[in-house]
Amino acid sequence: MRNTFADTFYEAGKTDSRLAIVVADISPAGSIAKFREDFPRRFINTGVAEQVMIGLTAGMAQRGLRPFAYTIATFALFRPYEMIRDDLCYQNLPVTVVGIGGGVTYSTLGATHHAQEDIGLACGLPNMTVIAPCDPAEVLAATKWCVTQERGPVYLRLAKAGEPQLTTDAVEPWEFGRLRHLRRGTDVCIISYGPILKMGLELAAELEARGQSVGVASCHTLKPLDREGIIQALQGHRQVIVIEETTPNGALGQQVKALAWECGARCRLDTFALDDAFHHVYGNHAELLAAHGLSTAAMLERITKT
């Protein structure tokens, strides 16, 4: 994901001299290093200083540039949260804040490096747009949108490197603000975003093996949420399942539940998210997710309970 972002940003930056990137001491991978070499004046490293990273991007945007801020998600969003709120959101400036390592991606680093609550916090900000692609192909599409958008501030939530492609056979293209069906099904609809969507695909395979017709959708744009698309999913299936790698408060699961109430949905609705807790667990990413109750087996057990 990181490399796809860097490649896409570099390519766009070759033709649009307004694009700039401000990083906070994160080693510039791949094409960002190339961007730094080719366009040194449009690359700033603030060092270990995230508040001024946001302040700089805001001031630069006020002078017509299109800056991106880039660091680990906890430091991109949590540390300078009030700068993001006042400088970017209140002033409604077209700045993209890129958070690397959303959720518990950095599974061995402890909760100081886990952006567990990022989706709810980012969605809570007026004027903010929140995008969380599920695979490198969606990172490409989302980054292309971010480099040209004039809407306002964006939180672009990425994982790290080496994520598999999940959308190669998708039945719908990526479109900003639209729930994207990757495959259609008539009985169950699984809605997810971010790399954990892979677990949704595995769950779909298990349910298909049990004779159900299962659709899977990527809700890559968390804000503005595709209310219509979600309401259609709620009204068009017997069961809807939401899977997300973030704590529940203010995240997708709660919003889908609210929409279900608003539209009088009759379907069964199961939501899966990280626990609202700090788990002092270290291991690989799958082990961290399992510690939060997120594994295909655990989900299968819960959703097949009557």
């Binding site: 449009r42 946001i54 302040g55 991007t57 001031g59 630069m60 002078r63 540039l65 400088d87 002033q91």
Partner: peptide
Amino acid sequence: IEASTGSLGHGLGLACGMAYADRIQGS
């Protein structure tokens, strides 16, 4: 008015961003 301030500690970072953008854009 160049910036929404009032919460202290924001203006100088914003001013740095403005001054830097002016510099690289030849203003």
